[in-house]
């Protein structure tokens, strides 16, 4: 299988501070990957670059085969190509119902006229119901998203990502602030999602990463420090020095 996303030699600096330093990273179709690294390692910035939020100073970001240059596209174009993103802080539309949140995310034409004349039919409502079951919120569809607990908001956001039906999911700290039981549910969700698409998960919690059971990339000071199985990277001396040993 060829690379789905190929990031090569990317650098970006904020006011002279190099947040991403000649970073290269690639992920295959249908792969599940965990990204770890200390605070400020550049994990979120990496996602910002892939999703078009931050423009790098140099480097290439290519999508699919033949490689399509993502750096020329806007955030919404990149999203429509099939890259979904979950933010570090849960961001759902708190003044709208869970159902409306999911309907808005559902893969459909995104232009204003289509949205204007769109009315949810039984098929779409069925899909939303299915997603709600998947994320454990089927009882909460008519509730306002703002009334959900922190963990439920995180799941709703993951549900919205799934509704977009992306080929690549970028998930930033999905388990932050969750109870152990909620974490377990989240791991299962992500593993199931990764059966049909590529998923990149940023997480600090080692137990969580272990349960994902996938290849791990360690970022440090904006570059890849180590890559491999969790056991391999955790026994790597460099990684221990900068991250685990503290």
């Amino acid at each position: 299988m060829g690379a789905l996303l190929e990031v090569s030699g990317v650098s970006v600096s904020f006011d002279g501070f190099k947040a991403i330093n000649n970073l290269s990273f690639s992920i295959d179709t249908g792969e599940l990957r965990a990204v770890i690294g200390p605070n400020g390692a550049g994990k979120t910035t990496f996602m910002d670059i892939v999703t078009g939020k931050t423009r790098p100073d140099s480097g290439k970001v290519e999508w699919g085969r033949p490689g399509r240059d993502l750096l020329r596209l806007s955030e919404s174009q990149i999203a429509r190509l099939g890259i979904g993103r979950k933010f570090q802080r849960p961001t759902v539309f708190v003044t709208q119902t869970v159902q409306d949140n999911l309907l808005m995310a559902l893969k459909k034409d995104r232009d204003p006229l289509s949205a204007l004349f769109y009315r949810a039919d039984a098929v779409d409502l069925g899909k939303v119901e299915e997603l709600a079951v998947e994320i454990g919120l089927q009882e909460h569809l008519p509730r306002l998203a703002g009334e959900l607990s922190h963990g439920q908001k995180q799941w709703l956001e993951i549900g919205m990502l799934l509704a977009q039906d992306p080929q690549l999911l970028l998930v930033d700290e999905p388990a932050a602030g969750m109870t152990p039981a909620e974490r377990e549910h989240t791991t299962d969700l992500l593993k199931r999602a990764a059966q049909t698409r590529a998923v990149v998960v940023v997480e600090h919690d080692m137990e969580f990463v272990r349960r994902l059971g996938c290849k791990v990339t360690v970022l440090h000071e904006g570059a890849v420090l180590a890559e491999g199985s969790l056991d391999a990277v955790t026994s790597n001396q460099d990684v221990i020095d900068v991250y685990l040993g503290r």
Binding site: S74, E75, S76, A79, F87, F93, Q96, M104, A115, Q164
Partner: peptide, 24 residues
């Protein structure tokens, strides 16, 4: 309808709407 939800979304959290693929 959905259009209304999208513009309310733009009001409340513009970047999120963008990352859902809507041309804000």
């Amino acid at each position: 309808g959905k259009f209304g939800n999208v513009i309310r979304g733009i009001r409340d959290d513009e970047p999120r709407v963008r990352f859902l693929g809507y041309p804000v």
